[in-house]
Design a binder for these strands. Sequence first.
DNA 1: GTCTATACATGGATAGAC
DNA 2: GTCTATCCATGTATAGAC
Lengths: 191, 191
Amino acid sequence: MARRSDKRERLIAAGCEVLYEQGLRGTSLADIAERAGVPLGNVYYYFKTKEDLARAVIAQRRLNIEARSADIEATIADPRERLREFIRRAGEARTQVATYGCPYGTIAQELGKTEGVLATEAGDLLRVQRDWVAAQYEALGLPCDEAKIRAIELLAAMQGTSLLTHTFCDASIMKREFERLDRRIAAQSLQ
Amino acid sequence: MARRSDKRERLIAAGCEVLYEQGLRGTSLADIAERAGVPLGNVYYYFKTKEDLARAVIAQRRLNIEARSADIEATIADPRERLREFIRRAGEARTQVATYGCPYGTIAQELGKTEGVLATEAGDLLRVQRDWVAAQYEALGLPCDEAKIRAIELLAAMQGTSLLTHTFCDASIMKREFERLDRRIAAQSLQ
DNA sequence: GTCTATACATGGATAGAC
DNA sequence: GTCTATCCATGTATAGAC
């Protein structure tokens, strides 16, 4: 119970990186242990199984997403400006995205194919973003249904752009398209 | 040389299915052999390695894409109507997409992360579609650069929608968004 | 709590009989 | 050309000393 070391945290942080870079099926526990500077056998003191570690990594990613949303909410009052900031921040990762894809979309896609249990939790990474975006559209006066539709439309544009940015290894695609999305939000009339 | 059986074709067809359903890393050669009704050891008579078989599967997918484009070109003369037909046909797969994702986007994403050699060939599945769509926009009078940008914008919307359709296991997302894309193309003025 | 050594399962690939 | 048996590497997981 009383743990003095930070190995668990290091393993999760290393897992975040390596799972993002190589996917779940493409990474061994030895990969993660090595990146974290922890001997392989010791991993099992902190996590019962590989799936367990993956779950912790996904939970951490989710915390990051929620922290970002909370930060935007705390610093920006206007829902429209919040959405623009959301797009702007996501767009900053374009170099990474060109190399490894979107950290949320790629894991949701990989785990959605086969991993029944993890699929839901990985999918939640996109679900919480959809819900947050929809909440901003609602705050702008759209009815609930319509807000949700617009949220999906925006996220789809972001995810699809990330996928092509990754596939074509070209960060300029993401720069251009995210700027377009930003302008669209800024100009959009919401009847 | 003179082969009487169709085992090679059966292996490729089975590979198309299983790789789509489970991803490359999630499928063993035994899975493919079983689906094709071929004993495991016999696979190696037709394909030197697993990567070799994967390459043949990707090449087959590419042929399918090119056949579809050729068919649309042969039956529809107006570039705008060709794009609408392209969207309509892709949208027909929405039930499958809800279960396994886009057959082209998911493989490009998975292989793009780590498989250096296969990554390019999988990426070509999206590249040829981008080029074909761009050619239609050019035929509509757009300059080459602008046509390419519009093509990426359209494919990004399709891919992102497919990803969310898959993640949320909800084919109605794809139905609604693809109809929206179709309407947008139909109405779009191209100055 | 930590780490080495190792058990055990899976899966790619090959040998060699037919 | 076909198929069985098997080799061997990798990777998850555990045993047990410290």
